[in-house]
Design a protein around this nucleic acid. Structure first.
Length: 455
RNA sequence: GGCUGAGUGGCAGAGUGGUCAUGCAGCGGACUGCAAAUCCGUCCACGCCGGUUCGAUUCCGACCUCAGCCUCCA
């Protein structure tokens, strides 16, 4: 198994600390709004990692946190005149709903920042006692970046560069412009008692505290979106390594960003697409295929055409499993090993997908029932390993977030049409088919049966 | 300006020093009452300029372009 390690900037042979066990920490959501498809990419990618590690026989301890104390949450609460946890709880619920629909495997632990204030405070105290942190008159506590010589090793920058490029106005209390806040003094909710007065944690420290609690000082994999690499992950490394006096994560994995119509998603551009919106039109596995089509370290562009392409591909694959019933049969080892090989090379999903497409073609061209079953079973089993083909063909094709016409009505029209066909009244039969097509229902006559699917 | 990464056919996207990726879309054909699905066939390619080489999309160097980060961000 080879994975690309952001820390070294190269592909490395993956060696977990404990054989066959993996401790993995992923930076999760800051819950101040509905999840968008950029989030979907990141978490679907880590879900793939998790599934494939399981497939290879690793036991993964997966921690994905929830950041529920943060400026944007507090701001929103102020605007809506509600408690901050009304906001965070609302969006945690929304997130869980989305993630369930995306068929994401649950993390083993999903810790919340607000429930780890004790751990956070003691970590800051530890850093202060070792002179890696300092408090100022105002009551804020900062991390002293110059006390940690390895600063910048993940994002590959040094302090001089950072100082030169600093665009923000320097806080007058900071010793160095790149020092970042560990504890923010505040009287507004939420706040907690501490030796520096009432306040709340800064961003970054919660991940150091929670990963330490659940995974220990040093663990295998730490990841998140590429945009978290700097400063968030860089700062986590600084805090954790200074506090624990041990190496932090061995492998860092970052998922490249997603653009919409060639532009970064943002509310001002009005190209902000939520997971809910996409799932309203497409089966969640279409989104999965869409992501798998591009390697996770490459930027991806979300357009109407590209999601349709993903749907076309998945449609074909599902089509080849129509009427498939799982029977006890050996799977094709040759395809299995090719599939494993592709994903073992830093999760080359485009290649893995191609193997599934090859299998589909083999099924369609199989000249014996036995061969067909073998390929179908192989396809199903490999696809399942990466979270695909978990639905039946029938229900996949009938999936739709919105209902324009009921299944009963469709079935009724189909039998009406077949009656007309038997009477050779093709004009009537075609008009019924056109009518259904206008409602996005496609009919397929196969042998003596008629199937329907959503466009 | 700095750092990091990337440039392959309409789009997506593998891979390799010397035949071919592949998929989606398109086009032609088979099948079908007609379609759809499926199968068969088919078009289109490696940013630019040098160098190494018998030969480079693949190796080396310069250049150009793009993206992300440098401020909140998955």
């Amino acid at each position: 198994m080879k994975i690309y390690n952001s820390l070294s900037g190269s592909k490395e042979v993956f060696k977990p600390i404990t054989q066959k066990k993996i401790n993995m920490y992923v930076c999760g959501m800051t819950v101040y709004d509905d999840c968008h498809i950029g989030h979907a990419r990141t978490f679907l990618t880590f879900d793939l990692f998790l599934r494939f590690f399981n497939f290879l026989g690793f036991e993964v301890n997966y921690v994905r946190n929830i950041t529920d104390i943060e400026d944007k949450i507090i701001e929103k609460a102020k605007i809506e005149k509600v408690n901050y946890d009304d906001i965070s709880l609302r969006f945690i619920e929304s997130m869980h709903e989305d993630f369930k629909k995306l068929n994401l495997l649950s993390p083993n632990i999903e810790p919340k920042a607000s429930e780890h204030i004790g751990e956070i405070v003691s970590m800051i105290e530890n850093l202060e006692s070792k002179h890696h942190a300092y408090s100022v008159e105002e009551g804020d506590v900062y991390f002293d970046i110059n006390s940690y010589s390895d600063y910048g090793k993940l994002s590959k920058r040094n302090l001089e560069e950072l100082d030169a490029g600093a665009r923000v106005e320097v806080d007058k209390f900071k010793k160095s412009p790149n020092d970042f806040v560990l504890w923010k003094k505040t009287q507004t909710e939420p706040n907690w008692k501490s030796r520096w007065g009432r306040g709340r944690p800064g961003w970054h420290i919660e991940c150091s505290a929670m990963s330490k609690k659940y995974l220990g000082n040093t663990f295998d994999i730490h990841g998140g979106g590429l945009d978290l690499k700097f400063p968030h992950h860089e700062n986590e490394i600084a805090q954790s390594e200074c506090c624990n006096e041990k190496g932090f994560a061995n492998y860092w994995m970052h998922v490249a960003p997603l653009n919409v119509d060639g532009k970064k998603m943002s509310k001002s551009l009005d190209n902000f697409i939520t997971i809910k919106k996409v799932l309203n039109e497409y089966h969640s596995e279409v989104l999965r295929v869409f992501f798998y089509l591009t390697h996770y370290r490459k930027p991806i562009n979300f357009t109407k055409d590209s999601i349709i392409e993903a749907k076309n591909i998945l449609d074909k694959i599902y089509e080849s499993l129509r009427n498939f019933e799982l029977i006890d049969i050996e799977i094709d080892e040759n395809y299995k090993s090719k599939f494993e090989e592709a994903l073992s090379d830093d999760f080359n999903t485009p290649k893995a997908l191609k193997i599934l497409q090859d299998l589909t073609q083999k099924i369609n061209k199989a000249d014996s029932a036995e061969k067909k079953y073998t390929f179908q079973t192989t396809l199903k089993s490999l696809a399942n390993a990466i979270g695909l083909l978990s639905d039946t063909t029938e229900s996949y094709f009938k999936y739709s977030g919105k209902e324009e016409i009921s299944e009963e009505e469709i079935e009724a029209l189909i039998s009406k049409r077949n009656e007309a066909r038997q009477n050779k009244d093709f004009e009537k039969a075609d008009s019924i088919r056109d009518d259904l097509l206008s409602k996005d229902i496609i009919l397929e006559d196969k042998n003596d049966k008629t199937f329907w699917k959503k466009r």
